[in-house]
Design a protein around this nucleic acid. Structure first.
Lengths: 152, 152
DNA sequence: GTCCTAGTTTTGACTAAGTCAAAAGAAGCG
DNA sequence: CGCTTCTTTTGACTTAGTCAAAACTAGGAC
């Protein structure tokens, strides 16, 4: 009953020039079902179906598919690295300061860098990464309203 | 020779309602001299003058002055937490993808959130954090031009 | 000036997240 | 069907940071 929204993991891998193996298919599928997951969450999900999987394999696969351009790694302050399959559209994220929930936000301009600073201090600018911080619906509704994980 | 740009560490601490102790003064001074330093770099700098200092003391002080509002913690992806004394002006950062160097960029609007997404997915928006990624002058000039620490 | 007490610092063990490297195992070409 | 190269496993290790209890000290009270 997991309504696999996956656009064919095997195809994705093959197109990226990566060998199609069980762990890789499992990781891509897990990411398609649960975007913005960390290595550990993915490991848990994959290990449920494939108990022989090692945590190291997950790290390997994530790093492989990230450098192959299938996945992207984001790292909001105070959280371990999270991965998502949505790549190349230069979108951004809203992160909940209380529970860490992450959702996507479309980029206004649609191409990188979507913003430019008024002075670059001599840097060659490649990309602007925008992270919106706020409080998600669930946390707004929660009973104890004052316990942020990220001090403002 | 260290042209202490410090606006009186003792005053800063006292105004924030914190006890003025040697480790705290040393950490604030170190941060004033070297903004965007990590806990370890600060520890090295402080320990040079105060060899009895413990790494834990540095973590305590950093966390104290951060929650007192004297310092701010930033955490660019792939790097440990960095601290700076410049607070309350909602500025942003440019980070070098090769060497990790960080410099400040003034915020265009000057107040938080300086940007708003076109959909908040139900989140209450608090702040927009912008990180510009690029290549610093030194790395542009470096001999080996292709070894980023952050894959694009 | 001296004492007291809450707030600080030290010490040292511990956790989380991730990396490194060598050996065992499989994908897919010929 | 076998070979070669790429993957995965195993397990030790590193880095960044947290937790908790004991020792110490800044600064107000006397």
């Amino acid at each position: 009953m997991p309504a696999t929204t996956t656009p064919d993991p095997r195809g994705l891998l093959r197109e990226a020039g990566l060998r199609v193996t069980e762990p890789r298919v499992a990781v891509v599928t897990a990411l398609a079902d649960n975007p913005h997951s960390g290595a550990d969450a993915i490991y848990a999900q994959v290990a449920a179906h494939m108990p022989t999987t090692s945590r190291q394999a997950i790290y390997n696969v994530l790093s492989d598919i990230t450098s192959a351009g299938i996945a992207r790694r984001i790292e909001p302050a105070g959280q371990p690295g999270l991965y998502e399959l949505r790549v190349g559209d230069n979108h951004h994220h809203i992160v909940c300061q209380r529970c860490g929930a992450v959702t996507d936000v479309d980029c206004v301009t649609g191409h990188a860098p979507c913003l430019t600073p008024n002075t670059t201090n001599g840097f060659d600018l490649v990309e602007a990464e925008v992270t919106f911080w706020g409080v998600c619906t669930a946390c707004k509704a929660a009973t104890v309203p004052n316990s942020s994980i990220v001090p403002v």
